[in-house]
């Protein structure tokens, strides 16, 4: 186990490096730069700015300086667009926000989705099954850029129950709608995956054996069926979690929550290289970390898998 973690961390560092170089290269290839603006800056002014940020250095040197800055001072550089803050500021500000509603959404999706999926599988073809399938499909077909405005329309304008956006230091009223909008489609996917893999397990031989032995249903499901049926679901959790943290662009855009999703996507549009790379490193290491956790979970559930 310890060896496994060590190995993964050893691989993680070059992974991040490759990731960084690739996205840096892609960004540099994109037309325009951070200071391309509607009113083209005089060459003189552009030169000053480039000199200030070291953008007049050759690309490899820019990248090198950036990496050295991270390694020595944990400095992820400045934002070229939002000039009164650094990438560290942006992460310190936005990441806790994204993480808060991301984790809550994740828990909601896993708990509600998982429970719905198991319930539907156990009572296959009953009203509960149809209800669960209906709800999950319904939840999945509404893109969150449709659901977001509808939620605001209903809960803010018509009912007046919840504020229509903002974060306000993370008050619970401000968290509810972003969580609903973010978690539902993942919840639906998890429910469907759980249902189908649960059904598969329930039909497998060892469950039949268990039934033949006359074990009660509850014992069969909890002690024997649940764990193996979670396998494909767990594979999905990694991408789902990363999706919830990074796919939060729409949530940030619609609810004005101030998370990093918005900064991330906009950094591509703004050609804000340092912000883009800083967030890439952050989200990249989150992904790697989470995938590692998933692999450990996997091995724990299915002892036949060797790490």
């Amino acid at each position: 186990m310890f060896n496994f973690i060590l190995r993964r961390v050893a691989v993680a560092i070059p992974t991040l490096l490759i990731l960084l170089v690739a996205s840096f290269w892609l960004m540099q290839t994109a037309p325009g730069g951070p200071f391309t603006s509607e009113r083209p800056l005089p060459q003189q002014v552009l030169d000053n700015i480039n000199a200030k940020y070291g953008l007049d250095d050759p690309l490899w040197k820019q990248l090198w300086n950036y990496l050295v800055g991270i390694a020595t001072e944990f400095d992820f550089g400045p934002s070229y667009k939002y000039k009164d803050r650094t990438v560290n500021d942006i992460i310190a500000q936005g990441f806790p926000v994204t993480l808060t509603y991301g984790i809550i959404s994740f828990l909601v999706a896993v708990i509600v989705g998982g429970a719905l999926g198991v319930a539907a599988a156990i009572r296959q073809n009953s009203w509960l099954d149809y209800f669960a399938v209906g709800v999950t499909i319904g939840a999945q077909v509404l893109p969150n850029f449709v659901m977001g405005p509808i939620l605001i329309l209903v809960f803010t304008l018509w009912l007046g129950w919840l504020p229509g956006g903002g974060w306000n230091g993370g008050q619970w009223q401000h968290i509810i709608m972003p969580v609903i909008a973010l978690s539902t489609s993942y919840m639906a996917s998890i429910a469907r995956l759980t249902r189908s893999s649960m059904l598969e397990v329930l039909r497998s031989n060892f469950i039949r054996t268990a039934r033949a032995k006359g074990l009660p249903d509850r014992t069969i499901i909890l002690r024997h069926a649940l764990k193996p049926s979670l396998l494909p679901v767990i594979s999905y959790l990694g991408p789902a979690f990363v999706g919830m943290v990074t796919g939060s662009f729409i949530i940030d855009a619609i609810f004005g929550t101030g998370g990093i999703g918005y900064f991330y996507v906009n950094s591509a549009f703004n050609r804000d290289y340092a912000v883009m790379m800083g967030l890439t490193i952050l989200l990249g290491s989150m992904t790697i970390l989470f995938n590692m956790v998933i692999d450990i979970l996997y091995a724990w559930i299915d002892p036949k898998i060797r790490l």
Binding site: T156, G165, A253, G256
Partner: peptide, 18 residues
Amino acid sequence: ALVINDENVALTRYFAGE
């Protein structure tokens, strides 16, 4: 000053008195 990217959402929030 509230940052609201979507003008239609902003209008809804305006009508909600925010």
